[in-house]
């Protein structure tokens, strides 16, 4: 069944609306939410940490290369790594990666449940499947992803430190001075806003694509891919919109 964009968007909104229903059993929903928080948070720490480390390292090395022969003091390396990480790299790159890791996982999990009739089984029991399967995932994403992004920002700055200092571009003291210079706490607020919005986008789109999957394993694979691609596009659009609104 092919749907046009407006029909798809309408169905997405209806799914989100259905999600806001009183839970049949609060304890079960709480358990499911904690399970999702663990899966999204702990399950993504290593990949986010690895990527954040190299992003910080590359940013530091690239900027240090640009500074060579200029009159700009070397402690700016720390300052640039910090601000570029906080404003853009930590939330956006982390969430693009999470859209691939968490988003595809969610779409496959819910889609698999649809194909194995587990969602039908829940509906027959009288469970609000949108609320029970989608709600905890979106809530967990919106809560845990900001923490992942904060951790990513910290690791990125540490990566920048190790790369810049070990390569001799900057002294440890200068790098740390740069990290502390011209600090605007508002940028941290922006980072957290971005993380929450991106977290919502990537989890809700993945849930939507998985929830309405029909057919066999090929369709499930397609839904999973679509979830990742669409989430990435929407994250980039949201990134631009937030940048316009908050700066």
């Amino acid at each position: 069944m092919k749907l046009n964009f407006l029909e798809e968007f309408g169905r997405y909104l209806i799914l989100l609306k259905t999600m806001f229903a009183p839970p049949e059993n609060f304890t079960m929903y709480r358990k499911e939410t904690f399970r999702q928080m663990h899966d999204i948070g702990v399950g993504s720490l290593s990949i986010i940490g690895l990527i954040a480390f190299f992003i910080g390292a590359v940013t530091a090395v690239q900027f240090a290369y640009q500074l060579e022969g200029s009159f700009i003091p070397s402690y700016y390396i720390g300052y640039i790594v910090r601000d570029s990480t906080i404003i853009e790299l930590a939330p956006t790159i982390s969430c693009l990666v999470l859209a691939g890791k968490v988003g595809s996982n969610i779409a496959a999990e819910i889609g698999g449940m649809r194909q194995k009739e587990q969602i039908d089984a829940l509906e027959i029991m009288g469970v609000n499947t949108a609320a029970y399967l989608v709600g905890p995932k979106i809530f967990a994403g919106c809560v845990v992803i900001p923490f992942l992004v904060i951790i990513a920002a910290g690791i990125s700055m540490a990566g920048g430190y190790l790369a810049a200092v070990s390569s001799g571009f900057v002294t440890p003291n200068d790098y740390l001075l740069g990290l502390r210079s011209f600090f605007e706490s508002y940028y941290v607020f922006m980072m957290i806003v971005k993380a929450i919005v991106f977290g919502f986008i990537l989890t809700s789109i993945a849930c939507y694509k998985g929830f309405y999957v029909s057919g066999g394993s090929i369709e499930l694979g397609k839904a999973s891919t679509q979830a990742v691609v669409l989430s990435n596009i929407m994250i980039l659009i949201a990134d631009y919109t937030i940048a316009l609104l908050l700066t």
């Binding site: 194995k116 009739e117 587990q118 039908d120 089984a121 027959i124």
Partner: peptide
Amino acid sequence: IGMLFQGNA
């Protein structure tokens, strides 16, 4: 209602 599914679910 109780239901037994073809694939057990």
